[in-house]
Write a protein that binds this DNA or RNA. Structure first.
Length: 415
DNA sequence: AATCTTTGCAACCGCGTATTA
DNA sequence: TTAATACGCGGTTGCAAAGAT
């Protein structure tokens, strides 16, 4: 089970695609859509497996692919997203229209990792290399160096961005990060300062403020309760519905600089600390579309189903959920912050799938800067021995662990 | 000019998960 | 309920081009 049947088939071509093969695949999908990938090679007259056809289409033949080198802005965005998402290339790619996960993965492995290392930043943890090397020294030093790390990273990004002409780092409207990090500017009380988030200048401090200033500060200032902290950390989720709402209102890519966006954000994000828990409402992700053309937009929103939607012969196998949408529900869709009652929260935890997602947030210090605080209280409940590792979904995906996570969340929802 | 090494990219492989029969 | 099939993801590999010696 699980193995693609075509992997066993013999006499199938492998290796690089010839122009003739490309032509066949392109014309077939243009006419009929891909439908069931396993049937594509036969219908298109190709001696390839469906998997290979799919890959070729996604990574090379798709008409919406952006060609050419990555811009500085794109590189910065990838670094920022990687700090949050780890090696989730498909989710990172979802934030970069026209770029494929494979492309981004290659860029990361061949280029960006080196760049970060040269700057003394560990590409895995996004912490200073010195800290990673001296992994023995923990806690208090970690806390302060965490800030140094993200500060270095920010400086790197800013320095490089300043060399690229269009729009400074602080001002890029399409930047995911520019939408994300300002939310956390105000530390534990960030959710109470929504209006200021639309100030473009906020991003300059955003990396520093992704984390509480320190363990102690967080717990002794205005963050007395775990719920405050919880309310703070997942704020990056909040812009997805904003962008989606924007799109539904305007049919255009989300514009952070617009008054509409500013008002919308103020409306969507409540002045409470309950934003940790999403409502059952899931939104489509924020995606910057390459053009204002709605048909193009619908492609982006529907991911690979573009051709199915546009072709007369729509023989989709019924799996209509686009990868992007699924991803959005995973990483950005849990965004409506209005859920404040415990029942809703518990409902959300009902799905195992969802539990795993939250488990990942709980598991990843980059996603959840308040992890240290949580684990102080939940040390017995939450596994946190992988704190400095990138996301390891499978590590805690057992139902037992899920129950622990759910229990932990329930505990905090009561605070 | 020839050879070796490095780099970047395209494609493959194996796995987990969702869907279908 | 179970097994087969299909899809999508991330890690890895192979190879051609570029660079170094």
């Amino acid at each position: 089970m699980g193995r693609h049947s075509c992997c066993y088939k013999q006499k199938l071509r492998k290796g690089l695609w010839s122009p003739e093969e490309d032509e066949k695949l392109l014309s077939h999908i243009t006419k009929y859509g891909h439908g069931c990938w396993s049937s594509v090679p036969k219908q298109a007259g190709l001696q390839r497996c469906g998997k290979s056809c799919r890959l070729r289409w996604i990574n090379y033949l798709r008409p919406d692919l952006k060609r050419g080198a990555f811009s500085q802005e794109e590189e910065n965005l990838i670094i920022e997203l990687h700090a949050v998402l780890g090696n989730r290339w498909s989710q990172i790619a979802a934030q970069l229209p026209g770029r494929t996960d494979n492309e981004i993965k290659n860029l990361w492995n061949s280029c960006l990792k080196k760049k970060l290392r040269q700057r003394g930043i560990d590409p895995v943890t996004h912490k200073p290399l010195s800290e990673v090397e001296n992994a023995g020294d923990k806690d208090s030093a970690d806390r302060s160096q965490e800030k140094v790390a993200v500060s270095n990273e920010l400086n790197l990004l800013k320095a490089e961005s300043s060399n690229s002409e269009a729009g400074s780092y602080e001002q890029r409207p399409s930047s995911f990060a520019s939408q994300v990090y300002p939310l956390e500017m105000e530390g534990c009380s960030s959710s109470r300062t929504i209006n200021s988030r639309c100030n473009n200048n906020l991003l300059s401090n955003s990396f520093l403020d992704r984390f509480p200033n320190s363990h102690q500060e967080s717990s002794t200032t205005n963050c007395q309760q775990p719920s405050d902290l919880l309310g703070n950390f997942p704020l990056q989720l909040n812009y997805a519905p904003t962008a989606s709402h924007w799109f539904s209102q305007t049919g255009k890519p989300f514009d952070m600089n617009s008054e509409f966006a500013s008002n919308l954000i103020s409306d969507i994000l409540p002045p409470t600390t309950s934003s940790f828990f999403p409502s059952p409402v899931c939104y489509k992700p924020s995606i910057a579309f390459p053009s204002d053309d709605i048909s193009t937009a619908s492609f982006a929103m529907d991911g690979s189903r573009y051709w199915e939607a546009s072709a007369s012969n729509n023989n989709s196998n019924g799996s209509n959920s686009s990868p992007i949408l699924e991803n959005s529900m995973f990483s950005w869709g849990l965004a409506d912050c209005s859920a404040s009652d415990k029942d809703a929260q518990i409902n959300l935890m009902g799905s195992q799938h969802e539990e795993v997602k939250w488990a990942e947030y709980l598991h990843n210090p980059l996603l959840m800067p308040a992890t240290h605080l949580l684990t102080d209280t939940l040390g017995a409940i939450l596994p946190h021995n992988k704190q400095q590792e990138p996301l390891q979904p499978t590590a805690i995906s057992s139902s037992k662990d899920n129950q622990k996570i759910t229990a932990a969340l329930d505990i905090f929802s009561l605070h």
